[in-house]
Design a protein around this nucleic acid. Sequence first.
DNA 1: GATCGACTCTAGAACGTTCTAGTAGCCGTG
DNA 2: CACGGCTACTAGAACGTTCTAGAGTCGATC
Lengths: 329, 329
Amino acid sequence: MSRTTLADVAAEAGVSVALVSIVMRDAPGASAATRERVLEVARRLDYQPDNRARLLRSGQSRLLGVVFGVAHPFHDDLLTGLYDAAERVGYELTLSAITPRRDERAAIAGLLQDRCAALVLLGPLIPSAELATLAGRLPVVAMMRSVRQRQVDVVRTDDARGLHLAVDHLVALGHSRIAHVDGGKHQPSSADRQKGYRDAMRRHGLEAYIRVVGGGPGEEDGAKAARELLTEPPTAVTVFNDLSAAGLLDVLRREGMAVPGDISVVGYDDSSFSSMAHIDLTTVAQDIETMTTLAVARAVERIDGAAVANREVVIPPRLIIRGTTGQLD
Amino acid sequence: MSRTTLADVAAEAGVSVALVSIVMRDAPGASAATRERVLEVARRLDYQPDNRARLLRSGQSRLLGVVFGVAHPFHDDLLTGLYDAAERVGYELTLSAITPRRDERAAIAGLLQDRCAALVLLGPLIPSAELATLAGRLPVVAMMRSVRQRQVDVVRTDDARGLHLAVDHLVALGHSRIAHVDGGKHQPSSADRQKGYRDAMRRHGLEAYIRVVGGGPGEEDGAKAARELLTEPPTAVTVFNDLSAAGLLDVLRREGMAVPGDISVVGYDDSSFSSMAHIDLTTVAQDIETMTTLAVARAVERIDGAAVANREVVIPPRLIIRGTTGQLD
DNA sequence: GATCGACTCTAGAACGTTCTAGTAGCCGTG
DNA sequence: CACGGCTACTAGAACGTTCTAGAGTCGATC
């Protein structure tokens, strides 16, 4: 049952182990003829390189650790982008999940043992100080969250601007009683989005209509907020994220509110499900491709020891107008 | 930037490398006094064991590779269970995701390089033959799908029985015009569930009412099926999975159908979102804890070379009655 | 015909750990 | 005091790879 190794291939092909290694890595130093022969033998013996031994020896691991949460559908979209970005620069990804019974620290600890060269954290919840000490050990890129500490790189969407776009859009449609359902105190980006909402409302002279309802990142949080809003419905509402917006939409519709006839709704993230016909949610899109590309690029720069000009990269969001927002009669 | 190794700790503590290794592994062979001292030094130098070197040497990797799909919310629930189960038996998990641009083969190849001791595949889509050759290389456990080939272990829910439960429940409520929205030809479990539906209908003498509508695993598939059903609505419908059922529910309600007043709906999976108040879906629960525990146990048995009596384990499902099914007037 | 350079190849160390085999000290027993 | 059997420890090989240094061959150049 033991796997075939370089030595097996070398013996079978009648060459040295080192030469087989050269061939497998596509490194210079082997003739076309032997290259061919070695490859043939490797294929025949079903040789699979042992990443662990490879990394152990070569020191640099071309491996990025990613921490994501099973409870966040948007993380799945980010993972997709990260895989693409990593592949483009010749890196591998190793994933570690946060589950209800496996917290962020455990997820990170798992990756540290795997000796990945850098960490990419999706919306990390642990305190900045902890992120900073972690960054003393290896490059750390935090996504979708700002971090004061200078050691930690940040790639995030300009969340304040995202809510400006949403509010501007609603105001242009004639709305003024615009509420905001926030993400709760545990979501690091919640404060930025709420602030963006408040600023935009003020800028439009709608200070008097500012109304923030407590919410959270889940569908259920949105549903709960909807029930609260229904006591005195606004004509429009911006929601912390799409999942929450979906829960909110569902309750609104079941209570007989027409969307967007009676109330307009704007989500956040442009999660994959928000474009589906029956949701058809107007939302603020985070630029997944740019964010993931930059996050991976930043991690690689740090690994290579390159000097990094601006450690925080803020990506502008984009408003995706779909069917849940409409002109106020 | 280079990490602290056993040798560093050994030098600092004035003992041999081997002894430090013993202490770190909690293995017998060190006095309480030195144990204490070594641990103190290790803590002070911020020592982190290098998993790769550890596994390389010890041969057995205590590492399970898991392939999951970012498009399947239910996989997130399974991951949660797998982490729990693996931890209980002292194994680690290494994840590899299937994304729109990274297919199952790529995901598997990534894991093979990591030298995990066995593979756990969540609802694999690749042909059985391919699974079989893979199983020639290392233990393979397929979840939520049956595999003819004897080399591959299977842990799955008794899907046919799941639909029996659903149909029985609906019949008991007085329904006879019960339709089924299936999972499409790409989902391996789709056929089993459809067959379960047909058998149950026949058993109740409802052969004439059998009606299968093409569907799929996504929310959008359910929405589409709903629109098709609406041309001539049945009084009840069983759906391939919860996500699809959620899409179906949404369309039904928006078209003015009362659930369960006009139509009852049963989902499948008991995904985490199905219990939420605004969905409140009656559904067939797969027993996540049992399935994940058994899948991990099976993988470990194979790794340890234990003889395995029955290579296919079929777990009975459980009907969770919530608010989307009701008495037919 | 010696020297050089380019090319192809190889031996052996190294990576950080675990494991095997052993050494040294100590205590108790006959 | 010789012996056995503990306990605490250590030296060195081993895992499968990459890397460094060098060896051998060949053809071209001086």
